[in-house]
Amino acid sequence: MRKTRVICFANNKGGSGKSTTCSNVGYGMTELGNRVLLIDGDMQMNLSLSLFDEEKVLEFAQGSRNLYEGIKRQDDLRDYIVHSPYENLDLLPSSTLMSSIEYELFTKWQREYILKKGMKNIVESGSYDYILIDAPPTLGGWVMNVLCASDEVIIPVESTPWGLFGLGNMFEFLEEVRQIAPDLKLGGIVITKVDTRKNYFKQTLETLKELENVKVFDTYIRVDSAVEWSQDNNAPVIAYKKNSRSAGEYMELAKEITGQS
């Protein structure tokens, strides 16, 4: 039985394309024959909205079957998983109440490992080849939980003048987390929102390539209106418009991450 690989998508800067990358890479992995669980760890619930319409997402958020309730009760998170409309792609939905998750964690014993403990039976069951977690754009106790529950972290960085802002803080935070989770790996950086007509991409790429021991994925994600249309239709772009440029790029990224071709 193949070991379940847990990957989180994290960046303390908002607007980096974390949720979109997480959703589309997850769907792309299923196209490559994998079973995938997506975990929505952000109160904005964008990952949940990439698979379900707003009415259904709010139903999850206001009910008892969401990540916040599972963490608050320190339950086995298997009981909070919902099936998505897509084959081999499941979701552990979020809630707007995730905004108060730091308070819930504050009083808990070994609070950095609550998500990891909740995921234990999911990981050990081998039900999924990959578990992808969308982390909120913050650095705190909850993101530390997400990182401690992961085998590796992928950092989406947008190709804009402010895209690299705060990346140093992210690296410092990863080093802090490694004090208690020494096996956590930096899977790499993926450049998003690329407009090849502008110099920002070249500058971003050159700056990132100068970083020591940091992998930058060969595949980058260009700006494409198909992504916005797919979001408007609550679907991964690969499912919504398979022949679009961004669908092809996310498929290539999924192959690069999994090592499959």
Rank of each mutant, 00 (worst) to 15 (best):
S99N: 15
K108I: 14
F171D: 09
V143N: 00
R178T: 04
P136A: 04
I71G: 04
E112F: 10
K116V: 09
V157G: 01
G163Y: 05
P161G: 04
L147R: 00
L132H: 05
A149M: 01
I81R: 08
T160S: 11
M170W: 14
M98A: 08
P156S: 01
A181M: 06
N169D: 15
A181H: 14
L164V: 02
E172A: 10
D183V: 06
N66K: 06
V177L: 02
T96D: 13
L91E: 10
D134S: 03
R178P: 09
S99D: 15
P156W: 00
D75M: 07
D183N: 12
D129G: 01
L167M: 09
K120P: 07
D183M: 07
M170D: 15
S64R: 13
S95A: 12
T160L: 01
I131T: 03
S84M: 07
I155H: 00
L97N: 15
Q74H: 11
L164P: 05
L97M: 14
N66Q: 11
R111E: 13
L91A: 07
R73Q: 14
S64Y: 14
F173K: 03
V143L: 01
E152D: 02
T96E: 13
N66I: 07
E124N: 08
V177C: 02
E124T: 07
E158Y: 00
G163A: 04
S94G: 15
E112R: 06
E87D: 15
P85K: 06
K185C: 06
S64M: 14
S95D: 11
S84K: 05
P156E: 01
I71L: 12
E175S: 09
L167D: 04
